[in-house]
């Protein structure tokens, strides 16, 4: 009897909460769809630059699935590799084939190696391939490659949750209303939250990066300060996005509902998965995701050891996201107080 009453009450509550209902049914579909596009797309085609390689071999490589670009000499090919246009170069060094891999994505390196070994077995069995890496090293593990992305992701995720729930509680416990009955400006509320939480996120960023590099021994080739800067920018974006979205949530539970909608898609586009297999127009979605810029820059710094000039654009975009979210937050507070 009591169980029945309870069951009916819960069903009623669910039916009234349309958002929870939609999330329950639609969010898994969304995530499944994304996974489909990530894992079930076209096959990976490495971009291979070649110079001085016999035409027969060139043709065989092209047949085995690589996009082949011919260069006049090895220097030119390797410059294109450094410029990010290629995944690997194949040149002749004293008559012996030399393979140089871009190296920051182990799955791409493996694909190139596999492809070349197959092509050469038929053409020139017994010839030893000289392998070198532009970035990273041969034993760069998947963890080393994903690491920078994971650092960014965890900072982003937890700050998002924390800020969202904290700001929501301020509203549901009535303290936000009380706060807004004082002469505080809406922009001051947002700025106060940013500063207060910003201090904690700075600490968090340092802790995560320090642990990953110092304790877990993650591959690190660049400046620690740049890693901290990027982490801080990412968490600021998470902070502003979390507080902004909490304005549209009525309970802690509804904050959690934002995870599959806001966080999970970012994971797919952040570089954890190779997007080359994905439909090109879907790949463009990554330009909307803060985590994409953060992860891109983190990889550039940690694996490729690049400096500020190489990640400038990422830094500006992350800043722009934070500023935009913060301003929207000031606007959203109008719901609580019109002035």
């Amino acid at each position: 009897m009591r169980i029945r009453a309870l069951t009916i009450r819960i069903i009623r509550q669910f039916v009234r909460d349309k958002r929870t209902l939609a999330l329950l049914f639609l969010a898994p579909l969304l995530v499944l769809t994304l996974m489909y596009f990530v894992f079930n797309g076209r096959e990976i085609k490495p971009d291979l630059g070649i110079a001085g390689v016999p035409p027969a071999m060139e043709e065989r490589i092209a047949q085995s699935g690589a996009r082949v670009v011919r260069y006049d000499d090895a220097d030119q090919a390797n410059r294109a590799l450094e410029g990010g246009d290629l995944d690997a170069t194949l040149t002749l060094d004293n008559g012996r084939p030399a393979l140089r891999l871009e190296g920051s994505d182990p799955s791409m390196s493996k694909a190139v190696l596999l492809l070349l070994r197959q092509a050469m077995q038929q053409d020139a069995p017994g010839v030893q391939l000289q392998i070198s890496y532009l970035y990273g090293k041969a034993d760069l593990t998947s963890f080393d490659s994903f690491g920078p992305v994971l650092i960014g992701f965890f900072s982003f995720f937890f700050v998002f949750l924390l800020a969202g729930v904290a700001f929501l509680r301020e509203r549901t416990t009535g303290t936000l209303e009380r706060l807004l009955a004082t002469p505080i400006r809406r922009s001051e509320v947002v700025a106060g939250y940013l500063t207060g939480f910003g201090l904690f996120t700075l600490f968090q960023a340092a802790l995560i990066a320090g642990y990953a590099i110092g304790v877990l021994g993650m591959y690190m080739d660049g400046s620690v300060w740049l890693v901290l800067l990027l982490n801080l920018l990412l968490t600021l974006t998470a902070l502003t996005l979390g507080t902004l979205l909490s304005s549209f949530a009525g309970s802690e539970f509804q904050i959690i509902q934002f995870i599959p909608l806001v966080i999970v898609p970012q994971v797919f586009f952040s570089g954890l998965f190779n997007l080359e297999a994905m439909n090109p127009w879907l790949q463009k979605l990554s330009y909307l995701m803060p985590l994409y810029y953060g992860a891109d820059a983190m990889r550039a710094v940690m694996i490729r050891g690049e400096g500020l000039s190489a990640i400038q654009l990422d830094v500006y975009v992350l800043l722009a996201f934070s500023v935009a979210f913060a301003l929207l937050n000031v606007l959203a507070l109008k719901k609580q107080r019109p002035i």
């Binding site: 009535g174 303290t175 009380r178 009955a181 004082t182 002469p183 002035i339």
Partner: peptide, 20 residues
């Protein structure tokens, strides 16, 4: 009203205890 500067001029006690 509403006017931001006027929020300085009164004391307010909300229906729920808005305390930390």
């Amino acid at each position: 009203m509403p006017r931001l500067s006027m929020l300085q001029r009164f004391g307010y006690m909300a229906q729920s205890d808005a305390l930390y």
